[in-house]
Design a protein around this nucleic acid. Sequence first.
RNA 1: GUCCCUAUCGUCUAGCCUGGCCUAGGACACCGCCCUUUCACGGCGGCGACACGAGUUCAAAUCUCGUUGGGGACGCCA
Length: 495
Amino acid sequence: MESAKESHEKKLPSLVGAKMGKVVTRLPPEPSGYPHIGHAYAGFINWYYARKYKGQLILRFEDTNPRNVHEEYYEAFKDGYQWMDIEWDKELKVSDDLPYFYEKARELLNRGEAYFCSCEADDIKASRRTGTACSHRQTKSEDNLEIWDKIIDGNYAEGEIVCRLRIDMTHPNAVMRDPNIFRIIDYPHPIQKEKYRLWPTYDFANALEDHRNGISHVLRSNEFATRGELQAYIRDLFGFPQPLIQEWSRFAIEGSPVSKRKIRPLIESGFISGWDDIRLTTLLALRRRGIIPETIKEMTREVGLSVAQPVLDWSVLIGINRRLVDPIASRYYCVTSPVPVIIEDGKPTKAIIPFHPDFAERGTRTVTVEDRVFIDGQDAARLKKGDIFRLKHVFNLRVEKKTVKAISCVFAGDELDQAGLKIQWVTDDTVPVELRIPNVLFIKGELNSDSLQIIEGRGEAAIKDVKPESIIQLERKGFGFVDENGEKVNINMTE
RNA sequence: GUCCCUAUCGUCUAGCCUGGCCUAGGACACCGCCCUUUCACGGCGGCGACACGAGUUCAAAUCUCGUUGGGGACGCCA
């Protein structure tokens, strides 16, 4: 028991170069969509180390592309982190720092470290592949500074010109081949409105913000690995110290896309219901599926700072969740394809059923069984004449006659047969239940037409009292999240 | 095409840096038994892996080279 418990308390490794009280990490979301499990994973790691070393965690919205950013997502991220119990110490928006970036950019222009380039985007791209420089590289500082002012004054249109760093067009790391650091975007920003039209690119903003925010450790997924060199170069340009960088591999869950590019068409076609569809891995979806935050944390500790390419199976997440949710989920009976069981010699009998087998303090409900109950069609199919089974928490019955429409039984004693068959049941007093059973969205890259199964059933009356958003267990069916509880109870099965 | 990262049970991961303690440990899944008024949780046991090929060494999962596979970058996205 102890060894099992210890193994569940797997810890993340110590952080290189971390000093107590001196660690500052960051949550750097772009508010352009809903947070998903990958954000929660990275968020938890950053939160974990900030707390472990009694440092600080900074929430920094990377909102430097007004075309991508929408106001609602700032809140969506905060909600997501809050749900994960990830608390941050300071909240910033990169878009608040444009004056700072402007000042730094002008300094670089003045020093000849940057220049404006009016080549076509495609030509710039091609020249990076071939490693050839364009004539704009030679523009004098004074002229570049003049162009800067003209852009601010509105003399250039979007797409007409960009500001690039003068590094090395033949650098082995293509990211270093004179990267763009500013571009014109004539589009209102949700926070800054129409105040700016010249926006810094990711690398420039990120490199300077990390220094400006006093970030000691940049903990991020390695899709940014090749940008590291550029970001370090930018900080070096100003003589800023370098934070320590720790990267891990971006992970995936088998059959569950994360990208907006893949998900949006599914929503538009109506294949899935929205960003909170229970087949997705957005935090909203996971919550509605009955996955709890602790499960995501546990999974993060398990996967750790791996640099391979983890592709997790849903069973890992679901298995961890089942263990964590077991003690908190009350048990209920629910039957699908109900088949009547006629108790020929039935007399009203009170069944007292506990809500949880291990915690008596969670209480019981009392149901009176008369001469008819319903059992699940699948259980009915297994019964044949002469079989003895127990109506769980009531008494034993013997099958006398079985027709396609009903099963007739007689009382067969009260003694509990430990090894005998026990069957869940409902009376006439039920509530309609809709079970939604999710499955993977994609199988081997193909959309899975069977990714959501909906089953109608009858739940015992006690389910009417379950608070929406509770996680319950339908005995022998599994755990689920009570999504709505009205005329009908919708339950999203975790699976 | 060029550059970077990576390769351990079905899946995830520990070990690799500092070679011997590894007949390779754990989690999830699966199978069996036990516990049990659930096919839940829990307990015990089982199945099950060092991608391949060379090399270095008394000794290699661990070091070197190559092959193959996987991921990422080469955006006026982040």
